[in-house]
Simulated assay, not measured.
Amino acid sequence: MIDFQKNAVFKLTPARVENVGPEVAPLIIPGEQIVLAFKTVRDFVVFTTKRLIAVNVQGMTGKKRDFTSLPYSKIQAFSIETAGTFDLDAELDLWFSGLGMVRLEFRGGADIRQIGHLVATHAL
């Protein structure tokens, strides 16, 4: 799902944590909690108290899944861009040590300031 060479953009809308939580539950470690969830048509991103988990649903049936775990401790810098009058999308850019930049684009009323605060709380 995340291509560090192309600075890929994913257009995400808010999702209910209880709807996607069971998908990533086996990856959650003791003391870690799911805080926010966002989805595309098939893929989704979960923000926990320790990391960002990106899930790429693959294949025709969607049974094959790629899970990418990006710990906040590896974030070197990040930026948020709020939605505007004509540009209704908000963006989060994350620079990961040794990996590169990931850009996530949010639609559908996502609170980018809340997301930025979550990243700041756990990365700084």
Results as ranks from 00 to 15, higher is better:
residue 94 L to F: 03
residue 80 I to D: 05
residue 84 G to M: 09
residue 55 V to M: 00
residue 100 G to I: 08
residue 59 G to I: 09
residue 89 D to L: 06
residue 50 K to E: 14
residue 82 T to D: 03
residue 71 P to R: 10
residue 58 Q to T: 11
residue 57 V to H: 01
residue 78 F to I: 02
residue 72 Y to P: 01
residue 58 Q to Y: 04
residue 51 R to A: 08
residue 103 R to S: 07
residue 51 R to T: 01
residue 68 T to Y: 12
residue 65 R to W: 09
residue 87 D to I: 13
residue 85 T to Y: 12
residue 92 L to A: 03
residue 48 T to M: 09
residue 64 K to M: 11
residue 53 I to V: 10
residue 49 T to R: 04
residue 96 F to C: 09
residue 65 R to M: 10
residue 84 G to S: 12
residue 63 K to L: 14
residue 64 K to S: 07
residue 103 R to K: 15
residue 97 S to H: 02
residue 63 K to P: 01
residue 49 T to K: 04
residue 84 G to R: 15
residue 62 G to F: 14
residue 74 K to T: 11
residue 60 M to C: 06
residue 96 F to P: 00
residue 58 Q to D: 05
residue 56 N to A: 12
residue 85 T to A: 07
residue 87 D to R: 15
residue 55 V to Q: 02
residue 53 I to M: 01
residue 83 A to V: 05
residue 53 I to A: 05
residue 90 A to P: 13
residue 91 E to P: 00
residue 86 F to K: 02
residue 49 T to M: 09
residue 50 K to G: 03
residue 83 A to Q: 12
residue 76 Q to H: 03
residue 54 A to V: 10
residue 58 Q to S: 04
residue 96 F to T: 06
residue 52 L to M: 15
residue 58 Q to I: 13
residue 103 R to G: 02
residue 79 S to D: 14
residue 65 R to L: 03
residue 50 K to Y: 09
residue 86 F to A: 08
residue 102 V to L: 12
residue 92 L to W: 01
residue 70 L to R: 14
residue 68 T to G: 14
residue 61 T to V: 12
residue 85 T to L: 09
residue 67 F to E: 06
residue 88 L to I: 06
residue 88 L to K: 15
residue 71 P to T: 07
residue 64 K to H: 11
residue 102 V to Q: 11
residue 52 L to I: 15
